[in-house]
């Protein structure tokens, strides 16, 4: 029988795998960017800053940068 503890364990591992998958696939890239942007503003409140990019802008920008260099091998 499943104890509440083992169920919690399993849920924890499923969450970890899901987290890894989102990070690896790039699904979480925009969230990471927003978090980094907020941290930067907090650390440098005087820094004259523009607004963060929209999700669409960020997506196109990341693709352009990614495929401007050697990103795939033989």
């Amino acid at each position: 029988m499943n104890s509440p503890r083992s169920t919690a364990h399993r849920a924890h591992y499923v969450r970890r795998v899901w987290w890894w998958l989102r990070q690896w696939s790039g699904d979480a890239a925009y969230e990471n960017y927003l978090a980094g942007f907020a941290a930067h503003r907090e650390a440098h409140p005087d820094c004259p800053h523009q607004q963060p990019m929209s999700q669409k802008q960020f997506w196109l920008d990341s693709l352009e940068r990614r495929y401007s260099g050697i990103s795939r091998c033989c």
Partner: peptide
């Protein structure tokens, strides 16, 4: 760190990224 080109990334995630990048035909 700029959230775009320079992003501190967990090593297991980066292992997956790097492997997917080097593995080809």
């Amino acid at each position: 760190e700029d959230g775009r080109d320079f992003v501190p990334t967990t090593r297991w995630v980066l292992l997956g990224h790097h492997f997917a990048a080097i593995a080809g035909p």
